[in-house]
Design a protein around this nucleic acid. Structure first.
Lengths: 233, 233
DNA sequence: CCAAAAGTGTTTCACTTACACCCATGA
DNA sequence: TCATGGGTGTAAGTGAAACACTTTTGG
């Protein structure tokens, strides 16, 4: 494995699939943040936020930087998805894209402030516009991964605010998995894991019984995980 | 996202975690193929087979090329694992490694022929030597992925020969997952999937009852998969 | 005929599923 | 007081777990 600077090298980018979830809409919806390209190639098409990896930063740091630039958010769930690198994926030359997906709650206050309205826009994952490069494939891969992962790892909570109701949690799963779940059975299962802490607060302001607000106990999950505990919806 | 050739670029490699399984040993064992480095850095240390990605080949093609060079095998299960790219992972400069893992049966005849004895060697995954670069981390990630995946996707069969006995299949799962399984329950579960075809042949030559030989019905699995069928051990 | 692994059935128990009613709140 | 979603219990059915004996083969 010789290492010389004369060896031809592809360019290296990261692309971020930023999943945003809005639990307060009547029609709860999973969205993805896209940016309208204003240069060729694919001018006018929508694309995933992304950019070159700097020589001194890690791949994850590059993804975090993109994420912060586009949403103003840091400290959100971020996971490497897949690396796309077919020679033809960028008409300008060989470009490797390491993709990351992030999970954010659309109603978090920092987000509203940070989002640069410029040409960034949230699209429902069920209704994507024409996309640049192979970003359609990337998004499909991301949705597949999210669907698979949400069922056996407690990452759904990352899409909700810190405090949420059980109905909001259920609706989230129903939205992501595109199914409907039995309310009682869902609650029993969630309760059995003992991973939610009752905050004692309730969500008032609606014309019906006020719902309890819970938080996810990350610490407890970390502990249980060590003993081979399996989360499953 | 400007694209210029003056932009600094990391080097791009693929590394292969080639899992080899020997079902005929008394002590069935999962092994990983390593190569002894004969140049600096990490001269004398063991490393994963890998090398630079050529400018005109896909990442997967590069991984397949490495695999064939080291084992003589093509047409084996190959899956992208993860991309490692911390700036310090290679002392010579910035090198990004896209890792792939492969599953092969150690007793397949093509393998024995193709394996270049040079400085390649199979090591039990429970007993790794000192490794170059971050290859220890890469292998740990690969084992984790294999353990996770083997339970809910029928990739275990890739580690066995075409025809295998149910005991061999069970031992495989017990080896990979490091548990013991109940023979009757295991057989009932496997049978319930209706994914194995009885070849009618038996494995003779042992001083006990001859075991039936089965093959995995890939076609049937592909069909069931479409209808949301879930495989699970 | 003996040793060794292949192969098979049944009971128990836990969990999942399906389903219907009362409760608290704001308007 | 009414409409709306929040919250709970139970019975039936399904699947997982635990367990022991008979069968076939080669030596």
């Amino acid at each position: 494995m010789p290492y010389t600077y004369t060896h031809p090298r592809p360019a290296l980018t990261v692309d971020c699939i930023i999943f945003g979830y809005d639990h307060r809409l009547d029609e709860a919806d999973l969205k993805i943040l896209l940016i309208e390209r204003d240069i060729e190639p694919f001018r006018g098409k929508w694309a995933l936020p992304g950019g070159f990896v700097r020589m001194e930063e890690t791949l994850e740091a590059a993804a975090k930087r993109e994420l912060r630039e586009e949403t103003g958010l840091s400290n959100v769930y971020l996971e490497q998805l897949y690396t796309f690198g077919t020679p033809e994926r960028d008409p300008r030359g060989r470009v490797i894209s390491v993709s990351y997906f992030a999970l954010v709650n659309l109603r978090s206050e920092e987000l509203a402030a940070g989002t640069d309205a410029r040409s960034a826009q949230w699209f429902s994952f069920k209704d994507m516009p024409a996309l640049a490069f192979d970003h359609k494939t990337i998004i499909e891969t991301a949705v597949e991964r999210l669907r698979g992962k949400v069922r056996y790892q407690p990452i759904g909570f990352e899409l909700l605010p810190d405090k949420f109701t059980l109905t909001e949690l259920q609706t989230l799963y129903e939205t992501v998995l595109e199914t409907s779940l039995d309310k009682r059975n869902f609650r029993k299962k969630i309760e059995s894991y003992e991973l939610l802490r009752d905050t004692g607060e309730t969500q008032r302001g609606k014309a019906h019984r006020a719902a309890r607000l819970y938080t996810f106990d990350h610490k407890r999950y970390k502990q249980l995980e060590k003993y081979g505990f399996l989360f499953e919806i």
